[in-house]
Design a protein around this nucleic acid. Sequence first.
RNA 1: GGGGAUGUGGUGGAACUGGUAGACACGCUAGGUUUAGAACCUAGUGCCGCAAGGCGUGGGGGUUCGAUCCCCUCCAUCCCUACCA
Length: 803
Amino acid sequence: MKAEYNPKEIEKAIQEEWLKEDKFKATPDDREKFYCLSMFPYPSGKLHMGHVRNYTIGDVISRYKRMRNFNVFQPMGWDAFGLPAENAAIANKVSPKDWTNENIEYMKKQLASLGLSYDWSKELRTCEPDYYKWEQVIFKRFHDQGLVYRKKSFVNWDPVDETVLANEQVIDGKGWRSGAQIEIKEIDQWFIKITDYADELLESLDEVDWPENVKVMQRNWIGKSNGAEIKYLIEGSDNYLTAFSTRPDTIFGVSFLAISPNHSISLKLAETDSSINQFLDKCKETKAAEADMAKAEKLGIDTGLSAIHPLTGKKIPVWIGNFVLLDYGTGVVMGVPGHDQRDFEFASKYQIEILQVISSDEEGLPVLQKGSLINSGIFNGMTSENASEKIVAELKDKDLGEELVQFRLRDWGVSRQRYWGCPIPVVYEDGEPRVLDESEMPVTLPELPANSAPIPLSQNKDFINISENLKRETDTFDTFMDSSWYYARFPSSNNKDEIFDKNSNYWLPVDLYIGGIEHAILHLLYSRFFHKALRDMGMVEGNEPFKKLLTQGMVLKDGAKMSKSKGNTVDPQSYIEKYGADTVRLYMMFTAPPEQSLEWSESSVEGASRFIKKVWNLVNERKYLDIKEPSIFTKEEADLRRKSHTTLVKITNDFETRHSFNTAIAAMMELLNFIPDSFKNEDADESSKYCLNEAITILLKTLNPIAPHISEYLWNDFYGDFSDDNIESSWPEVREDLLEVSEFDLVVQVNGKVRGKITIDKGLTQEEIEVLAKSIDNVSANLKGAVIKKTIYIKEKIINFVF
RNA sequence: GGGGAUGUGGUGGAACUGGUAGACACGCUAGGUUUAGAACCUAGUGCCGCAAGGCGUGGGGGUUCGAUCCCCUCCAUCCCUACCA
């Protein structure tokens, strides 16, 4: 009588065993190391499908690498500071700390129930002083390196709630809670000079094994562009407006300058000019997010000022444009409407002159391609490239411009006006900021009274006032700071005296980093910057933190991202309880390749469950038979052996190089379906049983990384006391001698259309093959009376007769 | 607006380097088993067509003996856009 598959029981028993034996605790040894890291979660309450997918991928690869005899370190922790805790605290009257820690405890249980092989001894939480103390230390050291400065910068200000809002808290220009029209307000904030590393962040992308699309996104984000800085004298003054342009060849086409609404000139004019003042007020209503700025209607106002064209001496009007960013470049744009789409639209709207200075075969403006110059004085007839060089030289002669390399990347503003974050370790002595010494750290976040909503630090008198003239900084760090160095802290997370000890040195860099594609730019760029800055201070080794990157796609339902606001979430926990972790893991890996988005499908879970049960029924209570490899096999037996080993080759390739687990699982299913029923009988031949055992061995071992509970349970049951072979530590060996075949199937085409198939012996020549192919009825019928012009033969694949 | 992806049967997906489109599953249909259902097993299943055959990888065009794959163009959906994480 077969026992029924009971995932709950099996999984619990196996997980307890792992725990008892401390199976996944990693320590340095002689083997090759493999640091496998999945992006740690924000403890939002419970795991969602995106987490399950992310962590299953990481675990499958970790377990596979262990079977290949790597020393694997796979830690887990919590990105525990952040906005949702404050929102929850306000909504539910619990402290962000209690809310966060309760969420962590629950989610940790969920992770355990998925059978993820983490080294929990190195767990970290970014909201603990043990962790963020070191973040403050890093900030101090960055400061001492000249990487930290203070600057005025813009925030979304809710005038009713009197708070700074995150971009996502501004909906249609209004505060989400108060409904008030938000304002762009300028306040003092802390910045880190990531731009000092712009060039290296760009260059060393070549060193990492990352998906090309992520590298492209980062390159475009950093946005290195070669161009020129061009100075325009403001008429009637000694002041210049300096604009950056990547197209100095179009300088004769400049017909206006546009300055940012926040430019000092704009602000000055607004003091006396009421219409400009009104215009600036209107500009403040556009949310600070780039996407919103870009979508907003392009508006401008003429300042009445004129600038002098550096080469023609012509007067050019100066406008204020709501599309000009002060933070990017100089806050001044030179408008070339004949050769730039946006400038063209702006000039058309406000009836500004549009000049053509690059010739084009096609009618109409703007002309966006480079070409040869017209209407450009002595530069007429030159190519864009040539003219750019000459024009910049001319400007340089006149001291009105020079070549310049410009980056799109801006410095990183790390100040947040929030409670639930790492306090910025700064005090103000009579208003003058001083970054604290390491001996004064950590600056701990003050506790809140129980059941209290978070009080902003700026209102917490006990925290702020150290003495009469000594006040604390009340901003906390951007949570991207917390997640920019956790990968390096993990191996040393228990060390209270050192930020990174020899363990970090041993395990770094991360060999494989796995996380959502949505982090392709910001998080990964900030982490790369941290690593380089830490390296320059001698704190870590190597240029890059993450050697290889795997970006997993999102989990969708009905074509949309699962989210609370859309109400289309699926709770993983109920599926773990109903089907078991192995089925959920198998489903996640089977349904789509890791990089693609995964469409959640209820019924496909059933399919995964069915396969697991089939494996159970095949192996359960089958006792290992100590059979020596026989010397003679029937054809059926030999076919199964070949299938077992070709499957193993495919799966190994899918795991190792393609991370294509869905096709690996499909191959396992094929192997299972291939086993003849007669081999499973008690009275089958010994040689058949031998082949069956071989297939089962390959099946259970290759399944182990994906469905570790059932495969380990069955393995122990299957082998019983007969073998010391431990399923977790050995990947099966391929028998190359079994892979060879003597025949192949050839597709026969006539004029590119399939007209027949034929099995060909490998020893035949092409001439012999052609004769055989032509002898197929349907082929000869299609070739009747035709003169063959060309025969294309692709070895062991296809033959095509063309007439 | 800019940057990056994706688009293949009723559904999820496969086709790895330009060489049999639809592997493997889900669903559906028929049959078996069962008191019935569930589960399980067997067979079938891209579309049109009685068939021969034709059509078919978002739309249109191109390169090629041959295109899901390469090029051009258009459309749709998703991600990021510096304060969600």
